[in-house]
Structure formats: C-alpha cells, structure tokens
C-alpha cells in the first residue's frame, strides 16, 4: 500500500541544514498494524504527517498503491483525506462547539453522504463504542478516553483504508489507553491498516510491526509476534 523510497526531510536555517528524516525506506502492506517508536524529536510525527499528506518530504519518493502522491493538487489531497485515510491526535482535536454526534458526523457531511445514511452510520458507531447516551454532550463534558473514542469514531466513520494515530494515548491514563488500543486492534482485525506513534512499549506491542526511529533514521524495523 505505502511505499516510501529514500525520504529526506530537512529544514534549512541560515548556516546549516537540519535533517529530521534521513533516507527513510518503508513498505507497508494492506492490513498491517505498525507502531513507530523513538525518543522525542526523532521525527516520528513528521514521518506520520508525510504519510498522511499533511507534510511533504524534502527529497525521495512516496507512492500509494504504486501511484506517486508527491505534488498532488489540493483537490486530490482532499480526496485522499475524505476517502482513504483517517487521523487520530494526541490532543483529540474535537470541535468544541459541536456535540459528540456532530463531531462524528462532520467527515460524512464533507463526503456528501445523505442525511439518512449519515444518521444510520453515526448511530452504528455510537452503538459500537457504547456512547449512545453521550451523543448530545459536548467534548468538554467527556473524559479524555471518551474524547479519544469520539476522535477514533470520527476518523473511521468514512471507512478509511488507513488510520494514522499520533500518540493517541499520550494524554490518557493507562486503563483508558488500554481501551483505546483494544479498539484499534479490533479495527485492525477487521482489515484496517493502522500506523500509530507511541512512547509506550506496552502499547507499541499491540502493533504487528515495530519501527524505531532515532535522529530521523530507521534503526530497527521488526515483526512483532
């Protein structure tokens, strides 16, 4: 699915070039569950954002299903965001003015799904995450774990093939973190490709493959059995 070839990411300041990612080669297949680990500042988020088309590499090639996705037009990018991938953030990034229900519904509106279908789809997910009773609450009225569940629900409501999660448990206590990881695992079992960034060894273990980054270089890339 994902093919990264010799990806560099650097920032130029006045006198020097700082590399954030250096010669990253990566192949990720359909249905994988990848955990990216590494110390702070090692480039994990940058890598994830490049994969998520939120950032562009300074050099190298990136293709999705053998189609290069560098130099995409705005419209094509939006299309990928609508139909191909979903995002989960450490800070949840829910829209405060909107209820749980509306937050989950938003991507469907942008996709142009009809109102009736939207209702059914949101209801399904709420049911699955046991949040039917909370649907009219606002994000601030939920616990962190619940907010992140809403974040996941929003990320997957459009049935993306690829789910990108940047430290989804970073702000959560371990019990709640565990619940989130179980949810991700279940999604993966259903066939969704997932790439997560995490600091937590135990949570990284939910992945089927662990990649370790150090100073922008892939140090280890191992199957996790």
């Amino acid at each position: 699915m994902i093919h990264l070839n010799n990806i560099d990411k650097y920032y130029d300041s006045k006198f020097q070039r700082t590399f954030v990612l250096k010669a990253v080669n990566l192949e990720i297949k359909d249905g994988e569950f990848v955990s990216i680990m590494g110390p702070s500042g090692s480039g994990k988020s940058t890598l994830l954002n490049i994969i998520g088309l939120l950032d562009t590499p300074s050099a190298g090639e990136y293709s999705l299903y053998d189609k290069s996705v560098l130099d995409l037009k705005e419209k094509a990018k939006v299309d990928y965001h609508r139909n191909f991938m979903g995002f989960i953030f450490q800070a949840y990034h829910l829209i405060e003015e909107m209820t749980v229900y509306e937050n989950i519904e938003t991507p469907l509106i942008y996709k142009g799904v009809k109102s009736k279908d939207r209702q059914a789809m949101v209801a399904d997910l709420l049911d699955r995450f046991n949040m039917v009773a909370k649907k009219d609450l606002f994000p601030q009225q939920l616990s962190g774990g619940q907010q992140q569940l809403v974040g996941i629900a929003r990320a997957i409501i459009g049935k993306p093939k690829l789910l990108l999660a940047d430290e989804p448990t970073g702000n959560l206590q371990s019990v709640q973190g565990e619940m989130i990881m179980e949810t991700l695992k279940a999604l993966n079992d259903e066939g969704m490709t997932i790439i997560q960034v995490t600091h937590n060894e135990k949570f990284a273990g939910y992945g089927k493959r662990i990649i370790r980054l150090e100073d922008g270089i892939v140090r280890k890339d191992v199957k996790n059995v």
């Binding site: 705005e74 965001h81 139909n83 990034h93 991507p107 942008y110 459009g158």
Partner: peptide
C-alpha cells in the same frame, strides 16, 4: 484556527 485545521484533516475542501 484549530477547528479549521481539524476540518481540513477530516476532509473539508477549501470550498466547503
């Protein structure tokens, strides 16, 4: 700003 960022990530085009 944040709301706009989120909306873009979940698939809102500029037009929307």
């Amino acid at each position: 700003f944040r709301e706009i960022g989120v909306r873009k990530v979940v698939g809102s085009g500029r037009k929307a």
